[in-house]
Design a protein around this nucleic acid. Sequence first.
RNA 1: GGGCGCGUAGCUCAGUGGUAGAGCACUACGUUGACAUCGUAGGGGUCACUGGUUCGAACCCAGUCGCGCCCACCA
Length: 920
Amino acid sequence: MKSKFEPSEVEPRIYSMWENSGAFSAGANARKDFPSFCIMIPPPNVTGALHMGHAFNNTLQDILIRWHRMKGFDVLWQPGQDHAGIATQMVVERQLEEAGLPSRDQLGRERFLEKVWDWKEQSGGKIIHQLKRIGASCDWSRNRFTMDKGFHDAVLKVFIELYNQKLIYKGKRLVNWDPHFETAISDLEVEQVEVEGKMWYFRYPLADGESFNYPVEFDESENPVSFETRNYLVVATTRPETMLGDTGVAVHPEDSRYTHLIGKDVILPLVGRRIRIVADSYADPTKGTGAVKITPAHDFNDWEVGKRTNLPAINVMTSKGKMFLNANDDFLGNLDIPECTLELDGLDRFEARKIIVKLMAENGLLDDVQTEKHTVPHGDRSKIPIEPYLTDQWFLDTKKIVGPAIEAVKTGRTRIHPKQYEKIYFSWLENIEPWCISRQLWWGHQIPIWYDEEGNQYCAISEDEAKKMAKGKSLSRDQDVLDTWFSSGIWPIGTLGWPEATPELERYFPTNVLVTGFDIIFFWVARMMMMQLALVNDIPFSDIYVHALVRDKFGKKMSKSLGNVIDPIELIEKYGADSVRFTLTSMAVMGRDLKLSEGRVVGYRNFCTKIWNAGRFLQLNDCQIGPQFDPRNATNEINSWIIGEIAKTQEKVDNALNNYRFNDAANILYAFVWGKLCDWYLEFSKTLLKSEDPELVAETKSTLAWVYKQSLVLLHPIIPFETEELWGELYNEDTRIIHTDWPQLAVKEYEKAKATSEVEWIIGIIRIIRSGKSLLRVPPSAIIPLNVHIMTDKRYEILEKYQDFFERMARTKPLVDKRNPEFESINLDNESFVINVEGGGAISLPLGGVINLKLEKKRLIETRESLKKEISMLKTRLSNEGFVAKAPPEVVEETRENLLKLEEKILNTNAAVNGIQNLL
RNA sequence: GGGCGCGUAGCUCAGUGGUAGAGCACUACGUUGACAUCGUAGGGGUCACUGGUUCGAACCCAGUCGCGCCCACCA
């Protein structure tokens, strides 16, 4: 065995060994009649790179997968990648531009898509390779891509089914439009960004020479007392450029300032168009001026107002967000739209804004400007303000299929962990809006709709089919593609071969756990629920584990623009995949984001080193599990103790993982392996192995080998590489650790209570001797005497039995029986450090010349004082009737026991004080 | 505006009714045959604040202050 564990050498070797031997294949290591256990990987972008969130997400999945595989379940971890419409198209377009190649438009659809496929082929393997680096044990032979033929057709099939059920329809609606990508996006892809903005107050002159009295001063009961005569209305806006598309001004039907103006017209400044003053309760008298300009084609609320009050909608922008004033798009009414003579055509909407404000000011129509913060909707990919835009789009009527998805979680058929996310899930689903599923992109699943010359729709899986339906009419296909999340929505059934009735669908669906971040609950989780239930009438998974976000050490979201991204691959190269995995696991607390700091990784890298060195110790001592060895029959107490401890650890780890308490699992293992196995048992074993009793030596070697082996198995789901390597080094097994059976150590059978309490007592004494020596600055190498003053015979015998351990582990001389039946005073024959022994008894370390008697007396008195304090605290509690009557009996009992222990300690301390006094 | 979460040791975080925990960092000592990526010992916290419930509160409840996030709206 090498003296150091070298992840960079071991990890690739072990991973290929697993992969080449089919260790990850669906059903590998499945025991007969065991149920299936299936996890669908949240498919990463095919052209993406692994970030910390992926590393975290997939580590947790891999833990669950490896754990179940070892337990004998029929396991499938289904991997795959997502085509990521906008993101991928964006990358390829940028590459073309950087390389000075023809642009998307110049290439045309077919040739552009070839470029995208090229890029996919070129970079698509990267993310898979990176997932392998962290040790993900997916069944790669089943890898799926959302644009692969089978999956592609499944997506179209879904569209066709839902279309035929009239759940998918086309309509001209106002949608969130991204002027950069020139596509519609869904509500979810819109981010609200707070910006410092301005509110402009514009005067819109009344038509036909009208004027009115506007109240300007009020008395105490808010009645107007003075008025000014106005021949204009004032409206407020944050987006002046949209005024060119104004087709009305709304006031509240009960706003007495304006009621008499309803039905009259104003002249839209700069444009000269007459637009109507309408009554609509959307206008809030308490906001702005109470009169609100209405631009139905560029504002969601205005669109609704326009529909209610029969105002036309005039689109004033191109799909790129540039002004375009003579579009003559009049979708809601039939007003005659006079030609606009303003020369703004082709100007960017924000440039136009400046000019319009300037023109309004020049015309004396700018009433006021205020600066204020407001939120502006931005495209989550383009990061520019989206534009509400009037277009033809496809929608999925989610309201009609949402019911079962809500029901499934309400009834607990699907459980969300942690539970608090259920609320978020419900609140979104219960207020769901139609889902805009069409995108004006090229990379994606092209909508399977063909149109004939009259515009009739033919929904079919292929052009041939559509032609048949159209009875030979000449057809053209809809140019739009589907939202990427539409295809992700059928990931569970799609990857298993739906719509075919495949054996995999039969075996693994519904799947068991979905492990995902909360940021895609709406995008993905809720939609999978809806779509699976709608298509195959079953839940996609029974459990949803929602994990938190990995943030940087300051709690900031990692992002490229902030430059605070920690690359998991770099961490893996520096510390090894196992260390990174253990770190993420130990921080995976439900419901709280994790701030990753490199210090944690270092700590767990050291843990991996510790495990390695313990393995070396076993090998140096030639530890193997003897053929006759049964851990339940170990005779030596120390051996029994550690056997009991590993059994308890196994139980705790299972319990933690069953409850998705990954951090508990990691911490339990850490505490056992380092705190118990290495710190104590290995040290004890050094003495045991020197025994002259060959049976004890054999039992100890077997125990070491067996307990360490169980530890490796329990660690394997979190630390797969190193445990596999150690397994190969230390144990001659037919199977690799990845396919070893997960232990089931019934604590009742494996733990010997007597051995546990005995060894724990000894550990306590060793600790306190070490502590005493250290406090008194006795050099650790100094070997000191150990006198026993107060002790029952029974306990003294135990103490004697462990003499050799005291000598090795606390550096003491053989113990000397100085017990005196008269407990009045300890018979201290030299300057001594006195120790109260847990559970009764007193020992001393005679340290002549080393310690200052007066100081030691002072220390003892201080000890006595603190004991007194504790005692009086406990006494107060026990004399409290409420406590005795209402506290649980075991708590009262425990308090009594503690009090007795303390009282014994104080007696011993008194005796020690007296002993010292005699010497002084 | 609605909702969720967080505030515990210098740092990163567990704990969640019964006398405060881990890792890292810090201090002292230490090369005993697994391990200096180590060992032993130690210092360090009125568990944000204020009230309440309780025999007992870091934990439950209410409020306050600070931080973060989600949803909605924004004339």
